[in-house]
Design a protein around this nucleic acid. Structure first.
Length: 428
DNA sequence: AATCCACAGGAAGCCCGGGAAC
DNA sequence: GTTCCCGGGCTTCCTGTGGATT
């Protein structure tokens, strides 16, 4: 080992650790206790526990903005419910589906069928399914949908059980595949002889109820639960609890947690965002070998998160929009006094010719500029230069170097870094 | 006051791909 | 497999506009 690399490792080893365990700050972690959600937990438990006392289960619709603890609360309560149901005559089985991933009628029914086939196999042994006349498994594609439904129906009705089906981000499902599957699931109870089904729909878009068939709507929202946003004090409380688990004692400077809470409270009380902010601030401090995390780290973490979000938007932009943005960046880097639509279009045409892409009309490019403006990547305001016409004056909202790198990742506009601007275009 | 510039942005219609219906 | 429909991306054509200049 060379002298210098020894230095590197020594430095790393000598740095005092910041985190005890950063996993507690990640969104994937389900906490043991949920502060400021006692009322929702209580209501949810009351609704879901009713079937254990022999009552007909109600379907439930949960609404709340992102980061208000909907999913965590449901996971927490259903876990408890499954535990308690061991002592009840009706076994409770909870299936959690994220409709952003499982987003078609077929896939939902097939996933549910497979889960309950597996449960039956666990209960009665391996040979049981064929003796009950059930298949071993439903393939993830290929069967007629009604056959999959039948299979799920048989698998579930084989036992005296309550199936709690949690459909998270249910709006994504309805948007992509309509409400057919919800219609089928919500009217299952009238046909089931032994089992009962309870649907829990979770959404952060209340308007989505409007797209539903009225029958599905009334059946899905037999019970409704609203998760209000956390306020700054509640966020602070939540952060303090998690920080105590995640950080070494005493590494957080005064005001760090308060600032994280204040930022997130401004963004409609999103606890996930507050935790993210705290974690990123911690990681920034750790990387630079700081002994304490200060409000300055939080400020930089906030900027970093905003910037990362913006870069992600740029990466997913269509090629033509990227080229328009690249033109704006080039003009900015060349020190153009004011960047206006006409100049952007000239540069854009040149870039298209150099990279062999189709040239769009100036009308269309004008729309693309407006779109970039709406996304917050650039600022475009209309100015009048009197006799010299009306145009849009454009300024960048993000760091040009990083935006440039994000655009250059696009393979369809290869060789972009080698593209050049003629001298005269920089003198505007 | 009239003119004129360099666009903004609305309206209509074309084209194409994807999905549903047959 | 074919046909139909729909929506998004785009073009063409057009009218409107604020303020410097004439």
């Amino acid at each position: 080992m060379t002298k210098s690399s020894e230095g590197i490792f020594e430095m790393l080893l000598e740095t005092k650790p910041i985190f005890k365990n950063r996993e507690y700050l990640r969104p994937t972690y389900t906490p043991e206790e949920l502060p400021h959600r006692e009322e929702q937990i209580h209501q949810l438990a009351r609704i879901l526990a009713a079937p254990l006392r022999g009552e007909t289960p109600s379907n439930l619709f949960i609404y709340g903005k992102t980061g208000t603890g909907k999913t965590a609360t449901v996971r927490y309560v259903t876990k408890e419910l499954e535990r308690v149901s061991d002592r009840s005559p009706r076994k409770v089985e909870v299936v959690y589906l994220n409709c952003e991933i499982v987003n078609t009628q077929y896939r939902i029914l097939a996933t549910l069928a497979n889960v309950f086939l597996e449960k039956a196999r666990e209960r009665y042994g391996h040979g049981c399914l064929s003796s009950f006349g059930m298949p071993q498994q439903v393939p993830m594609t290929g069967w007629p949908t009604d056959q999959v439904y039948r299979c799920f129906f048989d698998a579930i009705d084989h036992d005296r059980q309550l199936a709690v089906i949690v459909l998270d981000e249910i709006d994504k499902l309805v948007l992509k595949s309509g409400d057919g599957v919800l219609y089928n699931l919500t009217r299952m109870n009238s046909d089931l002889k032994n089992a009962k089904v309870s649907i829990v729909g979770i959404s952060n878009d209340l308007n989505f109820m409007g797209y539903l068939d009225p029958r599905v709507r009334s059946s899905l929202s037999e019970e409704e639960l609203v998760f209000p946003p956390y306020n700054a004090l509640q966020l602070k409380d939540i952060l303090e609890k998690r920080a105590a688990m995640s950080f070494i004692d005493g590494v957080l400077d005064n005001g760090v947690i308060g600032l994280c809470a204040a930022h997130a409270a401004r963004e409609h009380g999103d606890a996930r965002r507050a935790l993210d902010l705290l974690r990123v601030a911690g990681e920034l401090g750790e990387r630079e070998g700081a002994e304490m995390i200060t409000v300055e780290h939080v400020r930089r973490a906030f900027q970093k998160i905003e910037q990362d979000k913006m870069l992600e938007v740029i990466r997913t932009l269509p090629t033509q929009s990227k080229l328009v943005l690249y033109s704006i960046i080039l003009l900015g880097e060349r020190g153009a006094r004011r960047i206006v639509t006409g100049d952007v279009y000239s540069v854009y045409c040149m870039l298209c010719r150099q990279s062999g892409l189709d040239i769009l009309t100036s009308r269309r490019v004008s729309d693309l500029i407006s779109e970039l403006d709406m996304m917050g990547i650039i600022n475009a305001c209309i100015i009048s230069k009197g006799r010299y016409g009306r145009t849009k004056e454009i300024t960048m909202n993000i760091q040009a170097i990083q935006a440039r790198a994000a655009i250059q990742e696009d393979y369809s506009i290869s060789g972009l870094e080698a593209l050049t601007l003629p001298r005269q275009l920089t003198l505007m």
